[in-house]
Write a protein that binds this DNA or RNA. Structure first.
Lengths: 198, 198
DNA sequence: CTACTTTTGCTAACAGTGTTAACTTTTTTA
DNA sequence: TAAAAAAGTTAACACTGTTAGCAAAAGTAG
């Protein structure tokens, strides 16, 4: 029965083309402009075909959240690999995180901004855990190796600082100039690292 | 011509009842559930009446953003008044900010989460500036009185940290327990204040 | 008090949205 | 070749924001 195998492959390709179409619309017009009808038209099929692959629009969004966290994790990993010093690693990760948020605005916004209703499901997304582990491993090293409750606390602090910097900057409430933004980032991370063993 | 005066008063009351209706729906079912039709039904008028007071739905949202920043500013002001020491003031403001975000989730979310498309208009909202000033005045004191570019930088850092803590917590990505959250806040602010003169 | 003007509110429609039920066509299996 | 299964279609439902055009009420002037 090589038939079912080929069919599965076609199904997979169709699903991929749906995500590709959705991504194209998202990057050009933003996530709110992504509609099932537009996707259907782009892939050359009728509307309900999309529902053969995704239960609803939120399921498509969840796929993007997953993908976003993979990209973010990869960026963090690449940054980390550039140094062996854990403190330096954290600084590099911070810069990479900030760069990701600003150069992948659409991704970042659905990962955090619009993901609010998905509170419960968020914990089930493995990619978020992976991203966390990358940072935690550097933190552990910096703190001396043992994995204390302190490490969890510091991870939350670190992530919160990064998210705050990125998102405040994204909505541009106070219009800080470009050079200042980089300094804010370094300032915050500096304070974080200096206070790492308290 | 006391007629026009009375009419203006009625208009104002109508507008207020629209906002009240919108607020009621928002608090019960969240902002996305707020629709013009529901508002119209709640105030006992037909649908287009709402458009006599607000150009579109975004205008209603902007009103909520304004109101939210007033509430946030008030909370910050009340917290600040509890101490004369600027460092202590910042800590109190931080706690108040965090409390506001969590106890006024719906407000906070439209103030930051969904306000993304309004980048340009954000700068024109005076209430945001007011909120900033409250914090900046404490920062200036702590730094010795002069208003250097440093102060602006520190203000951005402070706000970013607070926003990061609040919003990361709100979407609850990693499910930090309640006691830990408070510690994360204190940890981050501690690091910030210790690094204030660098 | 009547006639005119302005304001106010209504109904109905347009152009979208997510989602689903029912039907047709194509493809695979026996 | 006939039955069964899968894939894809059209058409509808129940919403959404927004607007045009018309009816009714209220205020103003002769």
């Amino acid at each position: 029965m090589a038939v079912t195998e080929r069919r599965l492959k076609q199904r997979e390709q169709q699903k991929e083309s749906i995500l590709e179409a959705a991504r194209a619309i998202m990057l050009k017009e933003g996530w709110p402009a992504v509609s099932i009808r537009k996707i259907a038209e782009l892939i050359g099929y009728s509307l309900p075909v999309v529902y053969n692959h995704f239960e609803n629009k939120d399921a498509i969004m969840e796929d993007f959240i997953r993908h976003g966290f993979i990209l973010l994790g990869d960026a963090a990993l690449a940054a980390k690999a550039q140094s062996a010093d854990p403190a330096q690693q954290l600084k590099l990760i911070a810069i990479a995180y900030y760069d990701f948020a600003l150069s992948h605005r659409e991704y970042y916004q659905i990962m955090f901004g619009l993901g609010v209703p998905n509170c419960d499901r968020a914990k089930e997304i493995a990619e978020i855990g992976r991203f966390g582990d990358i940072i935690i491993s550097s933190l552990k090293q910096l703190q001396g190796g043992e994995c204390s409750p302190q490490t969890t606390l510091k991870f939350h602090t670190f992530w919160s600082i990064l998210h705050g910097l990125s998102s405040i900057n994204m909505i541009n409430l106070t219009a800080a100039p470009g050079e200042l933004q980089q300094k804010v980032l370094q300032d915050a991370i500096q304070g974080f690292i200096m206070n790492i063993n308290n």
